[in-house]
């Protein structure tokens, strides 16, 4: 049976993804001490809008190994059709591989996800986010505390969170999902900027 590192390509944001061809991200954190807690909390609010968006949360289902279908194009929220379970491997190795339908792109052709209702595909192995990154239906406080906890965020600091968003191509798809799917809010660059702003502010979380 295949074993994969849980924090491999997916981990943080979104669970499914193609990247927009040629998209590059700049990682320029604000100067130390230049961001107030208030500004940090405002950045967190935008980060939560992204993390809780269906494009991201549908594959951050925590202890459940069932990805979700929810969002404007799905009607009522429900588990992924076809009895799909990602298993402990999070790639479906124990049941049916995610890659059976979510094939892995080799050539970076930009219209790979143009067809509505087809299985999205990216230049990375499709998978469910790690159990610790439990976002679906979770509150702002819960997700915030998880994302700033090295025990549960893949042992990443602020810059590593930003770099993760830059490198892991599966995450990029959330902002260019195609097929009539609603993209995650803001842009990938704006989201990275918010992560850095929140980080420089000391990763503040809402009280409740």
């Amino acid at each position: 049976m295949m074993k994969r590192t849980l924090w491999a390509p997916l981990a943080l944001l979104a669970a499914t993804g193609v990247w927009a061809a040629g998209e590059t991200i700049e990682i320029n954190p604000p100067a130390e001490g230049s961001v107030s807690t208030e500004e940090g909390l405002a950045a967190w609010g935008r980060i939560y809008e992204v993390a809780s968006h269906p494009r991201c949360a549908n594959c951050h289902t925590g202890e459940s190994d069932r990805p979700m279908w929810s969002g404007p194009s799905y009607g009522k929220a429900r588990p992924h059709g076809m009895n799909i379970r990602a298993g402990e491997s999070r790639i479906g190795a124990e049941h049916i591989l995610c890659s059976t339908c979510h094939t892995t792109k080799d050539e970076d052709w930009s219209n790979a996800n143009a067809v509505p209702h087809a299985a999205p595909r990216v230049a990375a192995e499709w998978q469910l986010a790690p159990v610790e990154a439990d976002w679906f239906g979770r509150s702002s406080v819960e997700i915030c505390r998880q994302l700033r906890d090295p025990e549960r965020n893949g042992d990443r600091d602020m810059l590593e969170l930003a770099a993760h968003l830059d490198h892991d191509l599966i995450l990029h798809w959330a902002w260019a999902p195609g097929g009539g799917r609603e993209p995650a809010p803001y842009s990938l660059q704006e989201h990275v900027n918010d992560i850095l702003t929140w980080g420089v502010a000391g990763m503040p979380c809402p009280e409740n």
Binding site: I96, L97, H102, T103, T104, D106, A118, R121
Partner: peptide
């Protein structure tokens, strides 16, 4: 040796 939906695999991605 692994099952794949051939309608979803572009020939350029066969690698």
């Amino acid at each position: 040796g692994v099952a794949v939906r051939s309608c979803q695999l572009a020939i350029g991605d066969l690698a």
